[in-house]
């Protein structure tokens, strides 16, 4: 029973992760469950912050507004007793930071920054990130083109090229 419920919950997440615009009623039909059940399950997932938000995948390059994305490799000194978490928090609190991951390998944190211009991103690194006490070094890579983001391919051929009738 536990497993069965877990499977349903996973499937709700799978559906919403791909398209959060489906209504509770639609999801209930898809999963052959009561709307009430689905509503409660989603509420619980939201309360537990498993569903951490509903956002839209935007391809800003198609808009006239210029944006710049950079991936920054950051080497840091971990803090006694707090490890990397405190350092990371000082970094990810900045609204410019879109994502922040602790990494294995040659550096410690991946920080993804979005800004309006190259200059803005460069300033952020030079004036906010690099001067932090625990930051030993940074290496900034600018994104030239986004092919796929959050599982979504931006330049896709949406045309259904199947024959219109196949028996």
């Amino acid at each position: 029973m536990e497993n069965k419920n877990l499977e349903f919950t996973e499937e709700i997440l799978e559906i919403l992760e791909n398209n959060c615009k489906y209504s509770e009623e639609q999801i209930a039909v898809m999963l052959n469950r009561d709307v009430e059940y689905v509503r409660e399950a989603i509420k619980k997932l939201e309360d537990e912050n498993i569903i951490a938000g509903y956002r839209t995948v935007v391809d800003w390059e198609k808009m006239p507004k210029e944006t710049v994305t950079a991936l920054i490799e950051v080497k840091v000194t971990p803090q006694r007793g707090e490890g990397f978490d405190k350092v990371a928090e000082r970094i990810f609190r900045y609204p410019e930071v879109k994502a922040c991951y602790l990494m294995s390998g040659g550096f410690d944190l991946t920080v993804i920054i979005e800004g309006k211009t190259l200059k803005e991103v460069a300033f952020f690194v030079a004036e906010k990130l690099a001067p932090l006490d625990s930051v030993l070094s940074t290496s900034t890579h600018f994104v030239l083109k986004k092919y796929k983001d959050n599982g979504t391919i931006f330049e896709k051929d949406e045309k259904d090229n199947r024959e219109v009738v196949i028996l």
């Binding site: 259904d160 024959e163 219109v164 009738v165 196949i166 028996l167």
Partner: peptide, 18 residues
């Protein structure tokens, strides 16, 4: 149906067996 569809736009085909 192929001939009819060729002259129409915005058709959703639920006739495709693949």
């Amino acid at each position: 149906y192929f001939d009819m569809i060729n002259e129409m736009e915005d058709v959703i085909s639920l006739g495709i067996g693949e």
